[in-house]
Design a protein around this nucleic acid. Structure first.
Lengths: 212, 212, 212, 212
DNA sequence: GATGAATGAGATTTCATTCAT
DNA sequence: TATGAATGAAATCTCATTCAT
C-alpha cells in the first residue's frame, strides 16, 4: 500500500493463489441485495427475496450477515467505498484542473452506466434508519477529500470563491445525481451530447466561467 | 324555528366567526403522515404510528383512507399540488426574467423553511412503488409548465440554448434539492448568504452568465 | 285472547289508537337484519351494514338491542315463532288428514314465496354459535306439536308406523327445505307442477301410499 | 437418458417401503380446518385457531395457502371430490337397481359415521361467499352423474317419472342430510333400525313403490 | 332519542429470524 | 455449510361497540 499501484495491488490480492471461479456467496448476496434494494428500497424487500435473487437459501443470508440491518450497512459501506475508489482512485491530481474535473465527471458517468443500481441505492433515503454509526462516519469521511479539493481549487483561483465549498459540492452533486434520477424515471434520455453539455455546465457552475 | 331562519341559522353557525376552527381529522392525519413519512420513509412507518402521531385511533385512519396506499397517494398528490401552487401561484410571468427567477427561488426557499418535510417526502424514493397511475400522471403534468417556461426563456435568448430544457431543469432542481438534503443531514448549515449565492449560481447555470 | 279471532285481535292491537305509518324502528332493524343475514350469513354482515340496510344510524341498533348477539337471537326467535304461527295458526286439525297435510304444505310453499329469506335465515348454520339457551329451547319446543301430530297420525293408521316419528319429520322437512335451497342456488326452477308433485311425494313419504 | 434407470430409480425411491408415513403439514392443516369449520362455520374461525388446531404456527398456514379464502376453496373441492369418490367410486352400476341404491345409501351412512364433519362442512351455508368459480363449477359438475343416473332409472321404469329428476334428487338428498343434521343437534339418535327404515323410505320416494 | 365518527380489540397477512435436517 | 420450512412478532385492515353532539 506504499506505492502508487493501489489498483494493481488490489487485483493481485484478489486473485491470490487459488482460482476462485465462484465469486463467493457473500459477494453474490451483496450483489443481489444491491439489485433489489435499488429497485424497491430497503424496506420494500424481504430477506427471502434477497436470497432468491442471490440464488441461495434464506438461511444462508444469516450465515454471512448477522441481520438484515448488518447486511444493509455492509452493502452501503462497500458501495460507498467502491464508488469513491472508482471516482478518485489513481487520479493524477496534478494535471490541469479542467482535465482532472473532466476525468472525475467522466468516471461518474461511466460508473452510472456500468452500475446504475449503485447511485440508486446510495441515494436512497429509506436506508437512513438502518445505517449505524460506522456507516454515518464513513459518509462524513468520504466527503472530506472532496471538500479539500474544492478548497484547494478555490485557493488557486480556479473554483469560484463567492460560494462556500460545501454549497458548491452539494449543488454539483445534486445536479448530477438528479440528472440520472430523471433519466431513470423515463422523463429524459441522456445522449452523449447531453452529458458533455452537462459536464460543461457543471464546470461553469464550479468555476464561474462563461460559456463560449 | 317557525320562519325561514333554519337555514340561515345553520349557515351562520357553520361559518361562525373564525376561519376553519376545526382543522378536520382528515387534514390532521395527512399532516401527521407527512411528518412521519418524511422522517422514516413510507415503508418505515406502520399505520398505528401515523395514527398516534395524528392523535387518533388506528381504525380512524381507515375511515378516511381506504388503505395505507391510498393515504400515501393522496398525500403525495396533495403536497405535490400545494408545492406547485406555492411556487407558481399568482406569479407575474411578464416581469423581468431575473425577477421572476428570483421570486420562484425565494418561494422555494421559503417553502423549504416553512414546511421542510414536504421536500423530504416528495423526494423520497420509497413511495414510488406505492404511487398509482393518477399520481404518476400528476408528476408528469406538473413538469410541463416548467419545461414550457424554460423553452420560452431559451427562445427569448435568456436561458442558454446549448443545454436541453429538461437537462437544465433536472440539474437546477437537483442542485437545489440536494442543498436542502445535505443541510438536513447536518453536513451544512445554510445561512442567508449561502442561499443568495446558491440562487446566483443557479441563475448562472440557467443563463450562462458570468459572475460579477 | 279468549276467542278464535287471534289474528284479528292482533291486527286491531297493532293499529291501536294512533296511525303508525312508520312501523317502528325496532321492526325495521329486524327486517333489514333478516334480509342481509339471509344473504351473507350472520358472521358475514357487519353491524353498520345492518344499520344502513335499515336506514338508521349504527348507534340506533344499540338502542334497541344490547348487542349483535342479542339481535340475532331475537330475530331467530321472532322468525321461528312467526313461521310456526303461519304454518299452524288457526289450522283446523279435525279435517281430513290429507287436507290438513296439503294445507300445511301449501302454507310452507306460500311462505317460502312471500318471505324467502326466512327459510334461508332459519336454516343457516352459522348463527348456531350465537344462539342462547332460550333460542335453543324454543327450537326444541317448536318441534313438539309436530311430533305429536305425527304420532297421532301414526296412531290413527294414517302415517306409516315403520319409521320413527322424528325420522319422518326430519326427512320430510329436509326434503322440502333442500328443494328451496337448490332452487335458490339456481340449479332448478320450481314450477307449479313440480311443487304439486313434491307435495304428493312427501305425502307418500309420510303415509307409505303408492302413486296412482 | 441412456438407460431407463433414472426414472425407475426415482419411482422406487418415491414409493419406498411404507404408505405415506409423513402425513404432510398441508394435509394436517386441511384436516384441522375441516374440524373447526364444521363446528363453528368458516366465518366463525380465525386463522390462528386453525393453526393451533393443526399444531402449527399461524404463519405456516400461509406457506401452504395463499389466503384463508384459498384454504376454504381447496378444502371444499377436496372434500366434495372425496365424498363423490367414496359414494360412487368403483360402483358396479350394472347390478340390480335396488342393490346399487342400497350400496350408495350405505356408503352415505358409513361416510357420515366415519367423517361426520364432512357433511357438516359441505352443507355449510356460510362458505358460499368464499367459493370461487372453480369450486362452483365443481359443484355443478358433481351433480351431473347423479342426474344422469336418475334419468336412466326413470327411462328404465325403475324410478318414478311423475317427478322431475332434479326434484327427486333434491328431496332425497335433503331428507338424508337433514336426518344427520337433526341427529347432530341432539334431537334424535339414529339407530341401525332407523337408518334401514330411512333407506327404505328413500327408495320408495324414488320409485313410488309401496311399503310391504 | 338518534346519529355516525371514533375507538381499539381482534382478524388477516407478512416477514425477519431460527433451526432441524 | 447450506437449506428452506417453520416460527411468531409485527404489519395491515375490520368491525362490534361507545359516546359526544
Amino acid at each position: 500500500m506504499t506505492g502508487s499501484k493501489t489498483q494493481a495491488m488490489a487485483v493481485s490480492t484478489e486473485s491470490s493463489d487459488s482460482r476462485r471461479p465462484v465469486p463467493d456467496k457473500r459477494v453474490g448476496i451483496l450483489a443481489a441485495a444491491l439489485r433489489v434494494f435499488s429497485e424497491r428500497g430497503v424496506n420494500g424487500v424481504a430477506v427471502p427475496e434477497i436470497a432468491s435473487a442471490a440464488g441461495v437459501a434464506t438461511g444462508t443470508i444469516y450465515r454471512y450477515f448477522e441481520s438484515k440491518e448488518a447486511l444493509v450497512n455492509e452493502l452501503y459501506r462497500q458501495e460507498k467505498a467502491a464508488l469513491h475508489e472508482y471516482l478518485y482512485g489513481g487520479l493524477d491530481r496534478d494535471r490541469e484542473p479542467r482535465a482532472v474535473f473532466d476525468e472525475v465527471w467522466d468516471r461518474m458517468v461511466r460508473y452510472a452506466r456500468e452500475r446504475p443500481e449503485v447511485y440508486r441505492f446510495i441515494e436512497l433515503q429509506d436506508h437512513q434508519s438502518y445505517l449505524d454509526e460506522e456507516s454515518l462516519a464513513l459518509q462524513r469521511r468520504m466527503l472530506l477529500p472532496m471538500v479539500n479539493r474544492v478548497k484547494a481549487m478555490q485557493g488557486r483561483g480556479v473554483y469560484r470563491k463567492d460560494v462556500r465549498d460545501r454549497v458548491l459540492i452539494a449543488m454539483g452533486w445534486g445536479a448530477f445525481v438528479n440528472l440520472l434520477k430523471v433519466e431513470r424515471e423515463g422523463l429524459l434520455t441522456l445522449r452523449r451530447k447531453d452529458l458533455l453539455a452537462a459536464r460543461e455546465l457543471c464546470w461553469q457552475l464550479y468555476t464561474g466561467e462563461c460559456p463560449g
